[in-house]
Amino acid sequence: MTSGAESLEGEIRDLLAMILKLPPPPPADFVRGSVPQWDSLKHMEVIFALEDRYGVRFDESEFAALISPMAIAKALHNHLAA
């Protein structure tokens, strides 16, 4: 992965930590299933925050795949490159 993608992933990790109120420092990587705070309600907040931060709009069909900083970075990359 390029340093730009790593930087984006780091930003996403920080944003997720803030929305999910994870104690600092946030883990280097994590997935939705392993974070109890990341329930369905918080998932919607995460999506809303990502959309606001990066000026994108996810399709409902993408929601289920946005399960980790890496997966989100990949999805965002596709949106931002489009």
């Binding site: 309600l41 998932h43 919607m44 907040e45 809303f48 399709d59 409902e60």
Partner: peptide
């Protein structure tokens, strides 16, 4: 309407 299935409200992020 995207929010309805997982968050249980049909109000948008902006509305909230």
């Amino acid at each position: 309407r995207r929010a309805m299935s997982i968050s249980g409200t049909r109000l948008s992020n902006r509305a909230c």
